[in-house]
Each structure stands twice: as C-alpha cells, then as structure tokens.
Write a protein that binds this DNA or RNA. Structure first.
Lengths: 111, 111
DNA sequence: TTGTTATGACGTATTTTTGCGTCATAATTT
DNA sequence: AAATTATGACGCAAAAATACGTCATAACAA
C-alpha cells in the first residue's frame, strides 16, 4: 500500500488480512482446488489447466507458498507442489473466529 | 488484474475471490470489527479510530458496501453504516465450504 | 438566509499486483 | 558430452489498489 501505514494496525489484523489476500485472486483459488483434486502435481501441469502462462502461474504459486498455504518439494527437475493441510485448517479456524465475532445479534441501524 | 483474464475463470470463483479481497486489508477488517463493537456508527467516527484519513476510510467503506458486507443508511446529514449480518453469514458459509473442500486426507507429496 | 457539518465524488501521486517474455541453471535423456 | 526439460529469477508494461486533498452538495442550526 502506498505509504507504510499498515504498520499502524495490529500484527494480528495484518496477518489475518494477508491470508485473505492470498485467496483474493481466482487463479490462486483455482490452483488450490486443483491441488486438492490431484493431491499432488507440478507447476507445468497447473499452467495447462489455467488461462495463464506458466510464468504467471509460477508467481501465484510463489505467493501461496509465501503465506504457507502450499508447500513445494523439489523432485529432480520437477517441483512437487502440495497443499499444506495444517496451514489451511489453521487459516479456516482463524477466519471463522474472525467472522464469528462479527455476528452480533442486535443491530441498531435505522431503516 | 492486467488484462481481462479473470473472465476466463468461473463466475463462482471470481465471486469467491472478490469477497476474500474485500477482507484483504487490515483497515477493512478494522472497520468491520469496529462496526461489530459499536453496532452502529457513522463514517467520521470510524476515521477517528483508524490511522487513516476520512477520505481513505470512506473508500474502504465503499468497497465493503459494494460487496454487500455492510449497509449504509442516510440519516439526515450523517450516514449510518452497519454490518450486513446475513451477508457475513453467507460469506462465512461459502468460505468454510471452499476451505473444507481443500481438506483432503491423503497427500501424495514426497518428502 | 447564512453558516456549519457530514459526506460523497473527483482527481492525482505512489505502490502493488498481474501477466509475460527471456535467461540462466540444474537434472534428464540420448 | 550435447540436447532437452522444468523451473525460478529478472525485468517490464499495464492495470489496480491505496491514501489523500479539494470541492460540491444536502441537511441543520443559528
């Protein structure tokens, strides 16, 4: 963001936002779904499944890897990308918790 | 996104991504939390609570309103912003559903 | 009516995000 | 050893997201 103003927010909020951001692009959601379906695969394969170039897919993979939602293990010439199920569970928990806290019963909004 | 490539993804995925994007900035998460706490308030108030200018907060409010997570009702000179609890519940459901589908048991990733 | 206020619309400067092509590198094949 | 392959790193251009200041406008108060 323009100007480092994010530092003014709590580390927790920033972390939470970062995870949501990782899921804020259809390509990345697609990648996650694809990994869930095939359970294991390589970059090249994914690029074939998406309307994006290999280079671009690689970047999305990198972003997902940076927040820890997926893991990539080198296997000879290829790299095996997999979902990090624990990280996904953790994120799900915190996301639910965050959204749960927003679920208030009384709303004082005037019609 | 550079180039209108998002059209190549399923409408569902794009919609899902859009909601995640709405929550991808700490300021917006802050706004939602603040609205949950106070249950009702006006823009000016929120700007005072955040390390951002009124104009910027207004823009974040606009984004949240566009995806339907909050509702704004004009009340004289002021505008009353409130959480759209139903929309939040719906989002929570779809987010959980999406993440649930990623929770596969068997992972074939080589160590 | 004349101020005063609260907001939203606009315009703009910066930073990021996206998407891709091109190379360099490391592991396989032949 | 010489091709072939699969990737990641780099660099670039275009598009979006951020953060704000300034105005215009509508509702109220004096």
């Amino acid at each position: 963001m323009a100007k480092l103003i994010k530092n003014s927010f709590s580390a927790d909020l920033v972390r939470q936002a970062k995870f949501f951001k990782a899921l804020s692009h259809p390509a990345r959601l697609s990648i996650l779904q694809y990994l869930a379906e095939t359970k294991t695969c390589i970059t090249g394969d994914i690029a074939d499944e998406l309307p994006l170039s290999r280079t671009t897919v690689n970047q999305h993979l990198k972003e997902l890897k940076e927040v820890g939602l997926i893991v990539g293990t080198v296997e000879g010439v290829k790299t095996n990308y997999c979902l990090n199920t624990q990280a996904i569970k953790d994120f799900k928990s915190s996301a639910i918790s965050f959204l749960e806290d927003l679920n208030i019963d009384t709303i004082n909004c005037k019609k």
